[in-house]
């Protein structure tokens, strides 16, 4: 959706107010609040998954190219960042992460070439090729994990400009900064002509072609930018969240998880990725508390895992039936009910 230019508004209706407020709270209030558990288990993964969602949304939500291989790009980002950091001595951490994103972008562009001829499900199936191939390659060729016996890579210490971000709060702030910058850029992008081209290609590719919108260039741009962001998210997943990863953690389930995030959150919205990620991160925790409260010992980890799948699947279907535009649209409707905000 575009934000048409309007004259200055009463403060509450300004579209900038919510994100700015969120940033103020995120930087100024949150770090002083909770214990390390909240950061390590909730906030940091929430931010990383949101970023991955933003990336995928650019490709799938705005440009309409369904990709089931997001986890593979996260893996590329994680392993590339690890290798850049390891093998180029003196390379700043942020540079490693950006180069990792660029690597993912390159692969994304190459694998985006088929999108000119393939649509819909055929494209989705071809993205599965990336998913399985990348997972296999990263496990099979020891070079990627510096020949570690189990294919596991360890994150380097998080030092930027001499400051160490190695605490729970530090990792959170590190992630928050990168996520904020990339999200802001994405937000800006979708309101420009490029964003319009994305939407045009999604909504009616033929008409866009007739108008002169460069179809291949637009699709490749979408693949490239999307993969870059998802690659950076993968690097953050490894460096700031889990600290040790293996390629098995970037499996098909993870790809589906990102797809679910953007569907539940709302396709073709930036805030949707955050809403969806919040739900995805928080609901298993709620479910496990609820489960063990209601069912006690029967509710072990196996049961939890299966229940999670059921709840997730049900949520997807419920959203698709009742609110296909996701939590973002739901939020809009709620806001309109409150006259102060609408």
């Amino acid at each position: 959706m575009t934000t048409p230019s309007r004259p200055s508004l009463p403060l509450l209706k300004n579209p900038w107010i919510a994100p700015l407020l969120a940033l103020v709270i995120a930087y100024g209030v949150v770090p002083f609040l909770s214990g390390s558990y909240v950061f390590d288990a909730i906030l940091t993964p929430f931010l990383v998954l949101s970023l991955a969602g933003v990336g995928l949304n650019l490709l799938t939500g705005y440009t309409g190219q369904l990709s089931l291989g997001s986890a593979a790009f996260m893996a590329v980002g994680a392993f590339a960042a690890f290798n850049f950091n390891l093998r180029i001595p003196g390379l700043p951490l942020v540079a490693s992460i950006l180069l990792a994103g660029a690597s993912a972008a390159l692969i994304g562009i190459v694998f985006g070439l088929p999108s000119l001829r393939l649509k819909g499900f055929y494209l989705a199936v071809s993205t599965l090729a990336i998913q399985f191939f990348v997972q296999w390659a990263l496990t099979k060729f020891g070079w990627f994990s510096n020949n570690s016996p189990s294919g596991v890579i360890d994150a380097p210490p998080l030092h930027v400009l001499g400051i160490s971000f190695d605490s729970a709060v530090g990792r959170y702030l590190f992630t928050l900064t990168i996520v904020t910058i990339l999200t802001a850029l994405s937000w800006r992008l979708v309101t420009t002509r490029t964003g319009h081209h994305f939407i045009a290609v999604r909504d009616h590719e033929l008409a866009a072609k007739v108008l002169g919108v460069p179809i291949l260039r637009t699709k490749l741009l979408a693949f490239g930018l999307s993969s870059f962001i998802i690659g950076v998210a993968g690097a953050l997943w490894a460096f700031a969240y889990l600290r040790t990863v293996e390629s098995a953690g970037f499996n098909l389930d993870r790809s589906f998880q990102i797809v679910f995030i953007i569907i539940i959150g709302g396709l073709a919205t930036i805030r949707g990725s955050f809403l969806g990620a919040a739900l995805i991160v928080v609901f298993p925790l709620i479910l496990s508390r609820l489960g063990s409260f209601l069912l006690g010992n029967i509710f072990n980890s196996g049961v939890l895992e299966m229940s999670q799948r059921i709840v997730l699947g049900t949520l997807i279907i419920l959203f698709l039936i009742a609110e296909p535009n996701g939590l973002a649209a739901l939020l809009e409707r709620l806001k309109r009910r409150i006259p102060l905000l609408s």
């Binding site: 797809v259 196996g302 799948r309 059921i310 699947g313 997807i316 279907i317 698709l320 039936i321």
Partner: peptide
Amino acid sequence: FMATLGLSYIIEGGAQL
């Protein structure tokens, strides 16, 4: 398609549950 994706999660989870 997305709905059947969600469905697959429900059925898998349900089967094993």
